[in-house]
């Protein structure tokens, strides 16, 4: 994982520029065309890690007030705790819904952080592994995109539900890419199709529960967050 000791602010800024414009393209080229050809698992892992480092550096660089920090921490804790609250109902986990709601109401960055950190903390309870960076990245990105699309998602319940389905499917698509690449060293289409098919019931339940949670919790939680935003002055 992120094994970089980034002490100086200048180095962080440098990384913030270097990673997206130099390191990630270089890694992709190296693995796609250069001597690293064929090491898909290693390359995807490195790209995922760099994306996380990039985002963390961006976040660490800015000054964040105590209240904003707490807001993200509380939403992260709530999305993980949601797993325990709903533990009586199998397969219904509100994490994605919470990440999306946070992103829509507080912003893309908060969405990314809540998603990525929820994944990391969940794995403290359910087991860390090489999949951790991918989970962090996929949940983070789901939050990021929801934050960027906040206006339409806030306005229309239908779009919000669609996003829920998309989130369920996208999560499964991304995680299965990782599973297959990790297992096979390359993205074998037949194997990928098999993995997707095997995961289909989960994906379906997941998408359905996302839609239910977004519809059930979306509006009331949005109101709560909006009120707290005013109260906190963030």
């Amino acid at each position: 994982m992120k094994l970089l000791v980034i002490r100086s602010a200048r180095l962080r800024r440098a990384l913030g520029i270097a990673i997206p414009f130099a390191l990630i393209p270089a890694a992709v080229l190296w693995f796609a065309l250069g001597p690293g050809r064929g090491h898909f698992a290693l390359s995807s892992m490195l790209v995922a890690l760099m994306a996380l480092v990039l985002f963390s550096c961006g976040f660490e660089r800015r000054k964040t007030g105590a209240r904003r920090l707490i807001l993200v921490a509380v939403m992260t804790a709530l999305s993980v705790a949601g797993r325990f609250v709903f533990s009586a109902i199998p397969a219904f986990k509100p994490i994605t819904a919470m990440v999306v709601i946070t992103a829509i109401h507080i912003g893309p960055e908060a969405g990314f952080l809540t998603g990525a950190l929820s994944a990391l903390i969940s794995n403290f309870y359910f087991g860390q592994g090489p999949w951790t960076p991918f989970q962090m990245l996929s949940w983070g990105l789901l939050g990021l995109f929801a934050g960027l699309l906040s206006r339409p998602l806030k306005r229309s319940r239908l779009l919000l539900s669609l996003y829920g389905v998309f989130a369920g499917a996208a999560y499964s698509l991304v995680m299965d890419v990782w599973t297959v690449v990790w297992y096979n060293g390359a993205l074998d289409p037949a194997l990928y199709a098999a993995a997707l098919a095997a995961a289909l019931p989960y994906t379906a339940v997941y998408a359905v529960s996302n839609v239910i949670f977004l519809n059930l919790l979306g509006r009331p939680f949005g109101e709560k967050l909006d009120r707290v935003k005013i109260k906190y002055g963030v």
Binding site: M1, K2, F59, E60, A73, A77, V80
Partner: peptide, 23 residues
């Protein structure tokens, strides 16, 4: 990760403190 990412680890620490409380 604390030395590399002080703010993120602080958020993590707060979140980890909140989870049992919420439970």
């Amino acid at each position: 990760f604390g030395s590399a990412l002080p703010k993120l680890t602080l958020i993590l620490s707060i979140a980890l403190r909140y989870i049992p409380l919420l439970r």
